[in-house]
Computed example of a mutant assay.
Amino acid sequence: MRIIVVDDHPLVRNGLRAILAKEEGIELVGEAESIQEGKALIERAKPDVAVVDIRLGGESGYDLVKAMRHQPCAFMMLTSSSSETDIRLAQESGADGYVLKEAPPEELLLAIKMIGKGRKYFDQSLLGTLLRKDPDDPLEKLTPKEREVLGALGEGLSNGAMARKLVISEYTVKKHVSRIFQKLNLNDRTQAALFAQAQGIGSYSLRDKLEGGSV
């Protein structure tokens, strides 16, 4: 996977360079400090993923994303900002991910790999807040049965346990789970469980997962 970094802070670029150099299958093919340099680098290097700071001196990294969305390149915003406004701007600009600079290296690498495979990744610590503050109630997108399945996901139940609780087949459970992911733009069961918690549904926790709870 070919990666470029667009950030105006040398220390950040040096840190990313060190992290990426240790990961097999990832190649850092260029660095840039401004939007103009970033555009030229994307056109020249043809990266799979561009890691972009949202503030590039007096410029906005979102402008780079908007200008280069026509390129076969995914964009991950890497920033120290956890504001709701910046997260929403990232979504509106077409960014594929949003990760805080304080994230551990393993999370950064996970995000890059997921985004490189065509998936979305938004920092898990921000997911609940973002969804909870959505001006349009996301639960309105779900049918009554899908809400029940979401609640079961929030409890960390397996497909089999959900089928027994809701008195439906496991096949039907899988169909509901797939539709929930699609309607709420979620990637996996963990995100669905976190979303359910943010909405006050279910009682799943990461501790349950670490102790062997079903997700």
Rank of each mutant, 00 (worst) to 15 (best):
I3M: 06
R17G: 15
I19H: 13
K22I: 14
E24Q: 14
I26P: 00
E27T: 11
L28F: 06
L28E: 03
G30D: 04
S34V: 01
I35K: 00
G38I: 10
E43N: 05
A45T: 05
P47L: 03
A50T: 09
D53F: 04
I54C: 06
E59F: 07
Y62V: 07
M68T: 14
F75H: 04
F75Q: 00
M76N: 02
D86P: 08
I87H: 00
R88N: 08
R88T: 08
E92C: 06
E92Q: 13
E92D: 13
S93E: 03
Y98M: 12
V99L: 15
A103T: 15
A103M: 14
P105V: 00
A111T: 01
Y121K: 14
D123W: 03
D123H: 15
D134C: 14
L139F: 05
K141Y: 05
E146P: 04
E148M: 10
E148F: 02
L150K: 09
A152K: 08
A152T: 04
L153H: 03
L157R: 11
L157D: 02
K165C: 01
L166R: 07
S169L: 10
Y171Q: 13
V173L: 05
H176E: 08
F181R: 09
L186W: 14
R189L: 12
Q191R: 13
G200W: 11
G200E: 04
D208K: 15
L210R: 12
